[in-house]
Design a protein around this nucleic acid. Structure first.
Lengths: 132, 132
DNA sequence: CCGCATCCTCATCGATACTG
DNA sequence: CAGTATCGATGAGGATGCGG
């Protein structure tokens, strides 16, 4: 049994999956793996999340010590989000997810385009060195 | 871009996280990693899931070719669930999640008991060889 | 034993508008 | 630019009962 922030978990996988059972958190972390980003940058990349929801999710991740929030006291405001060491360690999980997804798609799906979007996939995978 | 079962994904991580963004699926797969199980066994281990929800989740996983469903035509009925090759390949992801959870708990949480419950953690980790 | 059918609750997320 | 506030929609999951 583990206790983190007043929440109890039966095992370490349950603890980890608490971060993963979420529509947005994984995506936010994924985009921060390559480099820190401003609020606006994140919002532009994740075009289908609302500003409010993004704010909420960033707060939750900050509370769990997965990301850092740094405020520059200037006008207009500038707030930069980056991964903590704990957040950065999630790279190993993403690497496995990345490779599993590729093998699964080759079995059960089809590749509809080989994009190199700044949003995802090969672009980020290359950047953070999990490609292969 | 990947297309699997009429659903489009921008990247392989998004594809994988489609399985993970769920309150129960990860837990079901985790319990099937060590060995196949009957419906009732799963229900007993995952004591806080309702029968209906378990049924729904098993169907979803079956539709995605993550698990097999084998019906023994007998009375009373016997239905056994097991992982497909694709499901079994998720072990690598779990291994990373397992280790991340442990390191995270050692930083930000506390170990409240060293259980060896059949439910989780060290018990299953040992069984499927992802311990350490 | 296993699963389906209803009905219902409630957290999560979206739309929109407004502030320092 | 980076939030907050309010209200409303929606859909996953829970409770219960029935059936092969």
């Amino acid at each position: 049994m583990y206790k983190v922030n007043d929440k109890e978990y039966k095992c370490s996988v349950a603890l980890t999956s608490d971060i993963f059972n979420d529509k947005w958190k994984l995506s936010i972390i994924w985009h921060l793996l390559s480099e820190e980003k401003r609020f606006k940058e994140l919002h532009e990349i994740m075009s289908d999340i609302t500003q409010k929801t993004l704010t909420v999710k960033l707060k939750e991740l900050e509370a769990k010590n997965i990301i850092n929030r740094e405020v520059y006291p200037q006008v207009p405001p500038k707030v930069v989000y980056s991964l903590t060491p704990a957040g950065a360690r999630l790279k190993g999980v993403f690497k496995e997810m990345y490779n599993w997804g590729i093998s699964y798609a080759s079995e059960h799906g089809e590749v509809t385009s080989e994009d190199n979007d700044v949003c995802c996939d090969t672009y980020i995978a290359n950047k953070i060195g999990i490609n292969k």
